[in-house]
Design a protein around this nucleic acid. Structure first.
Length: 699
DNA sequence: AAAAAAT
């Protein structure tokens, strides 16, 4: 029996593309619900299970979808036919699973069983999102009535600034070999480089820095301020690292004992150690030190920003209002720090802990900036995008757009998502009509550029979210190629919770006199997250995991591989705990849907690979379990940052085998996290406690 | 090992 009787729906996804490309996505969206008569929920026929009367007086109007749900639905729609069978990506296991159901497993099928008949009416609304959410074009009547005229005009002396000031295209190309687009630039030296402002910042010289080989670099005492501060491993141009003094990747860190209390800031003053670094390899040290000096100089104290408002930072009324709608009434410290310099056209490096509001920190000023540069111009059909935001995963790109889009929309700018795993027709269609801001992942962006369907040459602001990750092997080169295609001298913004030296590859080539920000005292472990390490016997692992996961509240489990993530989700499911997986082996429709199901609370447990480690925001995950320990402290910080967001509390539990204790301690030390280690066996009360279940009171 | 483009 065919999986889908509906003729159109049964075709392969790519067959939809001509249709998507042929008309606007908005028209497309309007039509499709009407044509969904093939038994889909929402059917017009009274016999169908999803039937609902046309006029439903008592029911709330159609404001049922949050932006995220809508986005997920629309993305999924293009490949719905593929998604029809929830297990199609795991064909090998199909027999086993269906067999189980056949002999009377009472539990409903995992994917669709508990799905309420498509009614989202009673789903808790997320009040931090604007009720209206259009993932593509706004309806005309939804555009803000106010025109640009009532905005305070501050563009008089500033709009030209970033483009009329010292242009960066007179910037020198450092090497002519592989940089096609930069050969118009004169040689750059630290002396004659145009200053962007009259500040007394030392000009940094990246160019004459000795090849960044670290082999001969002096060992420095990093105190307790490890790689987080621009000291990450470089992977770009470094050939083979001699193993002289660095047995592991970040193994040059001194061991520090877990003795004293470490959370007080007074106890970790050793940032100064950076500046007191040995003098060998001067230029290299100079680079590190300059960056770090700025980190200190421009660190923002939370108290200082208490009475700053978004308006006073230079954002227009519409944007300020939209931010309030998004739940951002007044700026978080990272936002207070970065908005003004971004509006000033500066390149910015910013580090803010997970969940500290980085998206708005770059998104709001980006929109404002693009708006100013467009002031007085018509929105032309087919205009080229002016801003680009790059993210390492599709889910993150989607999420960023969910935040940026309402902000952009409030001032009449358009955004579109450009990422893989979905038909490109919609995306290309949007580009053809003209968008101002694109948000996406590197692969599809490059793809469309090469196909001549995306022109980056007018991009004047480029943002890298999770910038250090974007410098990982495999990401760096595409990112470089993309950035080289942006407008000469375009403004670059690099954000991450773990911004470190890994970004130097990009800083060297693309950033000029960057301003660097971090939020003082906002260390990753300051407060809201409780970290625990469970030392377990490998044989107990599955049972212990199941025990931890069997709970109220949302749980995110991290596994190292896709296969293990899939296996764990199945194991939990088999144990009667509904769980879904999120990893790169799933098609995008399932990825989007499974994440949405955790967000909406329809499933409490999600087992993910590191695809979910960074940036993904789900409101109320209160337990993160690392079924496999991360192999990098940065990964630990990002994974654990999925809980304890925006000041909420959360618990992070990491399972390790006994022989990993040493390594785990080192990793936590680098992450500057204190966590008790406990040996645990199946049935221990600690498991009950950590899962939040009540230990049975002895009656 | 994972992620990111299809094919």
């Amino acid at each position: 029996m065919p999986k889908n009787k509906k003729p159109a729906g049964g075709r392969a996804a790519k067959n939809f593309e001509p249709r998507y490309g042929a008309k606007t996505s908005f028209q497309d969206r309007k039509r499709r619900p009407g044509e969904a008569s093939g038994g889909k929920p929402g059917s017009k026929s009274a016999g169908h299970r999803g039937y609902r009367p046309e006029t439903d007086a008592g029911a709330p109007a159609k404001k049922r979808w949050t932006a995220q749900e809508r986005a997920g639905r629309d993305e999924a729609r293009g490949i719905r036919s593929q998604a029809r069978d929830p297990r199609d990506a795991r064909a090998p296991r199909e027999g086993e699973r269906s067999a189980r159901r056949e002999y009377g497993d009472a539990r409903p099928p995992r994917e669709f069983g508990t799905r309420p008949a498509r009614s989202f009416d009673d789903r808790p609304r997320r009040d931090d999102r604007p009720a209206r959410s259009f993932d593509d074009r706004p309806r005309r009547d939804d555009r803000p009535a106010r025109s640009f005229d009532d905005r305070p005009r501050r563009d008089g002396d500033r709009v030209q600034r970033s483009f009329g000031g010292p242009r960066r295209d007179d910037r020198p190309a450092r090497s002519y070999d592989d940089r096609p687009r930069r050969d118009d630039r004169p040689a750059r030296s630290s002396d004659d480089r145009p200053r962007r402002d009259s500040s007394d910042r030392p000009a940094r010289s990246f160019d004459d820095r000795p090849a960044r080989s670290r082999a001969d670099r002096p060992k420095r005492d990093f105190g307790d301020r490890p790689a987080r501060s621009f000291d990450g491993p470089r992977r770009d141009d470094r050939p083979v690292r001699s193993s002289d003094d660095r047995p592991r990747r970040d193994g040059d860190r001194p061991q520090r004992s877990f003795d004293g209390p470490r959370r007080e800031r007074e106890d970790r003053p050793n940032r100064a150690d950076w500046n007191a670094a040995p003098t060998r390899d001067k230029a290299y040290e100079a680079h590190v030190d300059v960056v770090h000096e700025r980190l200190q100089a421009e660190a923002i104290q939370a108290e200082e920003v208490a009475d700053v408002t978004f308006g006073s930072l230079g954002l227009g009324d519409n944007i300020v209002r939209t931010l309030a709608d998004l739940g951002a009434a007044s700026p978080f410290p990272i936002q207070a720090a970065t908005i003004a310099p971004i509006l000033d056209g500066k390149d910015v490096l910013a580090r803010g802990r997970t969940g500290s509001g980085k998206t708005i920190a770059f998104g709001a000023p980006l929109v404002e900036s693009i708006l100013r540069s467009q002031a007085g111009k018509r929105r032309e059909f087919g205009r080229t995008p002016k801003a680009l935001i790059l993210a390492p995963t599709r889910e993150l790109a989607l999420q960023i757009d969910r935040t940026i889009q309402p902000i952009a929309r409030s001032v009449g700018l358009f955004t579109t998502q450009i990422y893989g795993g979905v038909p490109q027709g919609r995306q290309v269609g949007a580009l053809r009509k003209g968008v101002d801001i694109i948000i996406g992942t590197p692969g599809r962006i490059e793809d469309l550029v090469e196909q001549g369907k995306l022109d980056l040459s007018d991009i004047r602001i480029a943002v890298l979210d999770e910038a250090d990750h974007m410098c990982d092997l495999g990401f760096l080169e595409p990112v470089q190629r993309i950035l080289r295609r942006t407008e000469a001298g375009s403004q670059k913004l690099l954000f991450s919770a773990t911004l470190d030296r890994e970004v130097a590859a990009l800083v060297d080539e693309f950033l000029v006199e960057p301003a660097v920000f971090e939020v003082a005292g906002e260390d990753q472990d300051s407060g809201t997250i409780d970290h625990r390490v469970l030392v377990i016997d490998h044989r107990d692992k599955a049972e212990i995991l199941a025990s931890l996961v069997d709970r109220e509240g949302k749980t995110l489990v991290f596994a190292r591989t896709r296969a293990y993530a899939e296996m764990l989700a199945e194991q939990f499911d088999d144990a009667g705990i509904r769980a879904l997986a999120l990893h790169g082996d799933l098609n995008q429709a399932k990825r989007t849907r499974n994440l949405e199901r955790l967000t909406s609370g329809r499933v409490q447990v999600l087992v993910a690979t590191d695809v979910a480690a960074r940036g993904i925001h789900v409101d109320d995950i209160d337990l993160v379990i690392q079924a496999d320990m991360p192999d990098e402290y940065k990964t630990y910080l990002h994974r654990s940052g999925r809980t304890g967001r925006a000041g909420r509390s959360g618990t992070v539990v990491t399972l390790i085998a006994r022989q990993r204790r040493r390594r785990m301690m080192e990793l936590l030390e680098r992450a500057e996290i204190d966590a008790p280690f406990d040996e645990v066996r199946v049935g221990d009360d600690l498991l009950e406690e950590l899962s939040g279940r009540q230990v049975d009171p002895v009656g």
